[in-house]
Design a protein around this nucleic acid. Structure first.
Lengths: 289, 289
DNA sequence: CCGGGCTTGTAGCGATAATTTCAGATTGTC
DNA sequence: GACAATCTGAAATTATCGCTACAAGCCCGG
């Protein structure tokens, strides 16, 4: 990445604090009293606030190495914007937008907490390995989910199915499972979503799939689905939110990130697929109208 | 000076959100994307950032009740300075962690940015109103999604279907749509997910549904689906991530938060439903083993 | 008490920002 | 499909800002 971030205006000021003149000190005090907002007004207002003249402001700006007052302001705005991105400030600002107790804020807090904790819990190398498996063209991919995670499985299926051939969605109806097991080949990948209220039947399916030679990949919650015992790769995530049911935002996050990783990994091929997809889209649309 | 004058610029914007023109909406989006710093540059830069002309900025400022652009900036600075007074500055260093280039981190950054921006873009009163509609027992709820958002629609359906009776999922297959329109009654709610690559057919469906007397509720992206023109309530969210496809984490977030809000709103009733659900679950499981 | 170097503010100029005007573009309506 | 209403941006105008030049003030060593 880039080199160490440039000093902030505040740091520059402190550094030069010793050879500042009286008027410049007044300006520094005024700025620090309401940093950095005081410096975002016009040069005239800022000067008045510190009880100095406008040229003094200008001289200070130049002493700090800026080409002029607007350049200093731009630096201040830049810092501010970066500062406001940080998670704690973020929370404060959310709270300002709506009462803290509002469900949107509580939910958003929980969701981002989950995401952060999940990223810590997750091993990048496992993720990369899963992405590699999902990107391997010679392996067929079979995706399955439970009652709740079925929608996430479907979402992943829709995208992966666009990104590469040979992707299958195992339906939720158990009556259909035998024929899906039959179509499994050695080396295929079974990607299962299983979060709490673990489905015993899913374990059965996974065991059978493994017996057929499939690699089992699991996306589960922190308490670990029983499928984890037989899975070659497991990605545990956090799913608790203030609700009667768990949140599947992080499982969805993993699904989306996996798709992005798979697509990146084999970009030229995917690109041509997307292009062909668009062509077919148009053809079908035109044919219909 | 009425008592209402205390509103922040963000609140004023949201309040007037309905009678903003296209250019003004662009400005609003640009401002919220980096609030409030984006509005602190010169009028020229701000206009350029939002890809509109400077007079449009001015008109927006006046529409919000300011005497001119500088007055708006002063308001922004005022808010900012008030907000920066509280003790968040100390925790700034938290964010100083090195931004990893790994797709997981980049994706997570984008996702939380989207969430944050969406919460700003979203009017929590509209959200509450949507939750109220979804909780109204006498109204049937019809949920629909597009090719990609179909999975999210399905997810919402699964949960809402547990929380209350009379919830329906409109299938993606258009051949089935007529019979779903037929089963719509006056006062029913059609909740549609529509993000870019807007589906013209969905607009057709929504128009027909409205003609049958349904209230149209829309969850869309920042560029606003055409359905927004006829929807009684719209919740715009952000969906951009570093990937070939957009992210649906925030739509999922909205879905989950809506479920939580609906459940909270009528807790005793939902509680008994969940209890009965558990009973049936056990009965069926026992019967099968 | 006087001058030299440094600091500071006043005044004014050019540059840029903010605002107004107006005509073309767009949208909705009959 | 034509008209009215509305919206939008280019260009012109005005106001304000940022900056420079210069002179008055200040401090300190002679």
């Amino acid at each position: 990445m880039s080199a160490k971030r440039q000093n902030t205006v505040a740091e520059k000021l402190r550094m030069k604090a010793n050879d500042l003149t009286a008027a410049e000190r007044k300006l520094m005090a005024a700025l620090f009293a309401d940093y950095p907002v005081a410096g975002l007004a016009s040069i005239t207002e800022f000067a008045k606030l510190a009880n100095v003249s406008t040229p003094s402001v200008l001289r200070l700006a130049k002493k700090l190495g800026f080409s002029g007052f607007p350049a200093l302001q731009e630096a201040l705005r830049g810092e501010l914007s970066a500062q406001l991105q940080n998670p704690i400030a973020k929370h404060e600002r959310w709270a300002a937008e709506a009462p803290d107790a509002h469900i949107l804020n509580r939910f958003a807090d929980a969701a981002t907490d989950n995401l952060r904790a999940s990223l810590r819990l997750m091993d990048h190398r496992v993720f990369d390995e899963v992405a590699r498996l999902l990107g391997a063209r010679r392996r067929a991919i079979h995706i399955m989910g439970g009652r709740i995670t079925g929608a996430i499985a479907h979402y992943l299926y829709t995208h992966l199915h666009m990104a590469r051939p040979n992707v299958h969605l195992v339906p939720e109806a158990q009556a259909l499972w035998p024929q899906y097991l039959m179509n499994l080949s050695k080396g295929d990948v079974l990607l299962a979503f299983d979060v709490r209220r673990y489905d015993a039947r899913m374990l059965d399916f996974a065991v059978s799939a493994q017996a057929e030679g499939a690699e089992i990949v699991l996306i589960t919650d922190q308490w670990m689905s029983p499928v984890a015992r037989i899975a070659s790769l497991s990605l545990p995530v956090r799913i608790e939110v203030p609700s009667s049911w768990d949140s599947n935002m992080v499982p969805l996050f993993v699904a989306e990130a996996l798709v992005a990783a798979v697509v990146n990994h084999n970009w030229p091929d995917t690109q041509s697929r997307i292009h062909r997809l668009e062509t077919f889209n148009e053809t079908l649309r035109r044919g219909k109208s």
